[in-house]
Design a protein around this nucleic acid. Structure first.
Lengths: 294, 294
DNA sequence: TTCATCACATAACCTCAAGTCATCTGACGC
DNA sequence: GCGTCAGATGACTTGAGGTTATGTGATGAA
């Protein structure tokens, strides 16, 4: 029988009546009148072309077919009641936990997350910010976003490329205006250069900009790109920022990127133990993230 | 969740939508509009307090809870469809087959059967009339009605007493009027006595009536009480009929029973292989029969 | 960029399946 | 006899479940 034609109300009436062996008690259970039960069952019997009850004096008895139908319906309705109750009693959905490096969280993910929440208001996201790769087995996070110089840096994990990164100098617009009309790579040497952990990157960039002989420059060290970028935005100097992390601050005008020259520096990856086994909500988030970078 | 509150229509909509991963296809399957599916599912989600679908762009995806619910619902609805189709395709109910002796059928069962059919129009009864006890294993009849001098005459069968029987002379009213004003036992000797198989019973009756010395009387022999009673009703003589078999003809006035004296002659029994395992329809018939004799 | 399209959401309205009410029936059992 | 009780039935009513029309936002082709 086609789904659309399943006489569900009649089946519910029949199930209650069969269980009680009484139309009146079934009516009480279902909060309807006895007449309603009587009619539903008659219509069900007419639709099937077979009696389900034998009408005896002041009592009804199931026929053989009725007994078979009753057993199945009672089981089915019991199961449905049980699972619906379980769902209703269940705690709210756990948020999708995403492990990200602090800089990526601050510079890229948090600014973009509003759009995600508008698109998928029913999915809650929790950002787990930490330097080392999330320990997935502990269930601390379902997916991670990581920077790495090479692919497959994570044993027993699957990784999908989000985007390759490249670094270029960034500084506050006000600082740029103070500078000479045309800021050149050489001109940068007049400014405070903000370094991220290793002073290596600035030297690499000067090489790429055609100045191979620039010695290591002095300037403050920052433990994390986002700290260096914040300092740059406040006019404290010129930082090297990768295209992903500076994207939002360029958009808002907090930073400007005066040079086209950039140096490649690894890539950002989406990491998970098994993408095929992500929870539906996490999968939606992963798909959204990949789409954002495509 | 209480049976009366089970949102069956919403569950059906959800099941179709989940199976197709599409509200539009579900709507087509159930012959309703897409808007109807959307509303039903939204109301179900509100009732449960949890999302069942994640709304993605131009496609919906089940949440984990939704997946669990879908599996159960699909199974349940499949089962319901299947059994309803089986019932609908099933041949009409087999009649309840009842094995009775011909005399009992003619004199008692057939006249009373109309009342049964009025009370239980949905139960069809087939009378299997035969002299030997029904061979139940062959499925020829579900229950039998038998006369016997003693209980448990049927090995591997259960038997319930319907009524004890007693014989007394019966004759046509017209014949009675022709007779002397007060018909006495001795007066019967003037009439043709109708015998059933053995001439024994008449002699027993005369003894019971206080005439121990009456010799065996002549008169036609009938192979079956009902034949003797029919002959009596047509005025061909006086028959000995037991209270069960003559009941109907006394009621209609075809026969009269002028004497209070009667001789016990066994009993009628309801016989079945196992009363607890009768079909519901046969059980109804058995109950009705026992009530008729109570 | 603009426009068409597609899938789901939503608002307003409609309709008939399902229910109510009142009454009937027929068998007990006191 | 007579009250009672369980189910059946006819006439009427109502709200769950539907419809139509339109909105929304992402996507992709022109």
């Amino acid at each position: 029988m086609k789904r659309g034609r399943l006489p569900l109300t009649a089946l519910r009436s029949f199930e209650a009546a069969g269980r009680h062996q009484s139309f009146t008690l079934a009516a009480e259970e279902l909060f309807v009148s006895q007449a309603a039960i009587s009619r539903q069952i008659r219509e069900l019997e007419e639709m099937l072309g077979h009696d389900l009850f034998l009408r005896r004096h002041r009592q009804v008895t199931l026929t053989e077919r009725g007994q078979a139908l009753l057993g199945l319906l009672t089981d089915s309705f019991d199961n449905m009641s049980r699972i619906l109750e379980e769902i209703r009693a269940a705690p709210p959905d756990k948020p999708v936990r995403i492990s990200v490096e602090p800089s990526f969280a601050a510079c890229w993910l948090v600014p973009k997350l509003n759009r995600f929440r508008e698109t998928f208001p029913e999915i809650e996201v929790m950002i787990v910010s930490e330097a080392k790769l999330v320990e997935f087995r502990g269930g601390e996070a379902e997916i991670g976003i990581r920077w790495s110089g090479k692919a497959s840096s994570w044993p027993r994990m699957q990784a999908k490329l989000l985007t390759k990164a490249a670094m270029s100098p960034v500084l506050a617009p006000a600082l740029l205006e103070q500078a000479a009309a045309a800021l050149t790579p050489e001109g940068l040497l007049e400014h405070t250069l903000l370094h991220e952990e290793k002073r290596l990157y600035w030297q690499q960039w000067f090489v790429a900009a055609g100045l191979p002989d620039v010695p290591p420059q002095p300037g403050p060290l920052f433990a994390g790109t986002s700290l260096a970028l914040d300092a740059a935005a406040r006019g404290h100097g010129v930082a090297l920022g990768d295209n992903v992390l500076v994207e939002d601050m360029l958009r808002t005008g907090d930073l400007v990127q005066p040079f086209a020259t950039s140096i490649p520096c690894g890539a950002y990856w989406l990491v998970a133990p098994d993408f095929a086994r992500l929870s539906p909500a996490a999968r939606v988030f992963a798909d959204w993230l990949l789409a954002e970078f495509s």
